[in-house]
Design a binder for these strands. Structure first.
Lengths: 326, 326
DNA sequence: CTGAAAGCGCTTACAG
DNA sequence: CTGAAAGCGCTTACAG
């Protein structure tokens, strides 16, 4: 048997569907008698309103589309957790959509959300704003998270501040042959971290070598292994994320180099693992980023005049054993 | 200006909305001429179909509701990742819904999904099947994941096999004063692990003490700290998950007890951290659990006759340094 | 191959 | 306070 509809309830309660609708939505203009009959019929039929039909009628879905490149890694799961928590407490559901590389695929992912959500959270550190804008319905509220954005409202991590803090820390420790393992090319976070780190070291007399990694643990390990094999000497490593830092630590250990005695190491992100391995890193309050994204999106959707433009979240340097003073 | 609708396209292309619909859905019975005009109009207007309206008409949403207790921890993020991957590749979106404790709240969470999804994945290790069944629309396909289920189709982890493997491993190592730090009461996984572990040790002459934890790292640490303070001596610890095992390791280290020399330690789950700290554990292919849940749900939704009933996923013992032979 | 019309399950002016 | 009717944006028999 098919699920009961509002018509079934109306028939059973001997009232019109209009009255059923009013009663269910707790409108004032319904007599107690009618309300009671409706509730009774709802119980008897086990009626549950059809949210899809309601959305169409109201032009409101109470759902938020979350478009992200990939669910891999603690970063994304944490940010989704922050969004989910805030959204749920405000009566919204999250609709997840993976956006694979390739702007055509990205456009389709975005289009599939039309008519399903009231707004969009877009995370795409690898796409340009133009590509995204072309696929974004202009009338849909959207917040860009850690995504290149000039025109759109967004939330970003202050990568520069984090990288700078690491640079200053290394200088204070007296390290002067520094290696930076960067993230993948074309990734916004990776670029900003590398650029700021380089700038912060400029003119300090410190020698800097940059190796290109890809945010994976293996790339961190390989980078350092190769570097050591080449005979290069260095006394500090700044990896653009914690996973690469973890790989670097393994390579250093395998090579018999003491950390932090001979080489100081810092990561970026402060994933839970970092604390366990005593890794100095830059703490990003990831879940909070996600939560803020929802707060701002809802303030647009619900018409409050929230702050517009870019919001920058400052990370914090967390010093642990991998950079204790010599 | 509002988004274009199918009517706008029809008007512009000078055909009926029926023809537009047919053209957009690539039906055969549309002349090339009409198809071309429609495509042109779509381009000019930047028309994107309204998925919500389409769903109502088709009684099909191409969305799957995922109901879970909490996004905390690597377990849930991994399982969602597995589901998301499979769902996306099959053209479905995931709609996330948090189910807080309390069966009334749970019922509402489930109801809010009516008319929004084609099927449900339900994870609720803390609720009884009756509570859930009362709130579940009987006509909606559903798969229960790691949730008490007799009537419904489900996927479960073979907790008993995992706990047994740990017990055998400890016995082979010659350990005979064993401690089990269990998960929270009323949690299905926790119960099954504890019960199976106890049974496997029965009659082996091994002495077993069970302490009640709550799956948090702190509870693992506190449990062992308290135990040591009480003067109890033991030579092996089986924590019901890796986080508690990690806490236990810290307490042991602080107390100066050698691992595995004096005390062998095993966890459960094999979260990424486990490898880093050399923790022996029971590997659960979490993402695979999520993927299988989607595969089975879709086979119900799409009418293929998939296997019904409970599917049991066998975990695998991973021996690392925390249980090397003395 | 094409269009007018009914229908999916709701909400809401409008008139009473 | 209540009901008949139109409308949200699609799809699809039905008749031509």
């Amino acid at each position: 048997m098919a699920e009961a509809t509002i018509r079934d309830v109306a028939r059973r309660a001997q009232v019109s569907v209009a009255s059923v609708s009013r009663a269910l939505n707790n409108l004032a203009n319904v007599s107690e008698h009618t309300r009671a009959r409706v509730n009774e019929a709802v119980q008897e039929l086990g009626y549950v309103p059809h949210a899809g039909a309601r959305s169409l009628s109201l032009a409101r879905t109470n759902a938020i589309g979350v478009v992200l490149p990939d669910l891999h890694g603690e970063f994304f799961s944490e940010i989704v957790r922050g969004m989910d928590k805030e959204a749920n407490s405000r009566g919204y559901l999250l609709l997840l959509s993976n956006m694979h590389t390739g702007s055509a695929q990205a456009a389709n992912a975005l289009k599939a959300l039309r008519g399903r959500v009231d707004g969009l959270i877009v995370m795409a550190p690898h796409l340009s704003e133009e590509d995204l804008a072309a696929a974004l319905p202009s009338t849909t509220p959207a917040i860009f998270v850690n995504t290149p954005a000039v025109v759109h409202d967004g939330i970003r991590l202050d990568n520069a501040a984090g990288a700078q803090a690491v640079a200053m820390h290394f200088i204070e420790l007296g390290r002067n042959r520094i290696v930076h393992i960067s993230g993948p090319r074309d990734n916004l976070d990776a670029e900003e971290r590398a650029d700021a780190f380089r700038r912060a070291l400029d003119g300090s007399g410190v020698q800097l070598e940059v190796i290109n990694g890809d945010f994976s643990e293996e790339s961190g390990e390989d980078s350092i292994r190769t570097l050591i094999a080449s005979g290069t000497s260095f006394d500090a490593v700044f990896a653009a994320n914690d996973m690469m830092a973890s790989g670097a630590l393994q390579a250093l250990r395998d090579a018999g180099l003491a950390v932090p005695g001979e080489v100081a190491v810092s990561g970026f992100d402060d994933i839970p693992l970092a604390r366990h391995i005593g890794l100095t890193t830059v703490r990003v309050r990831i879940a909070e980023l996600g939560q803020r994204a929802i707060v701002r999106l809802l303030s647009i959707i619900e018409g409050d005049q929230g702050a517009s433009g870019q919001e920058l979240h400052s990370p914090e340097l967390i010093v642990r054993t991998t950079t204790l003073p010599k």
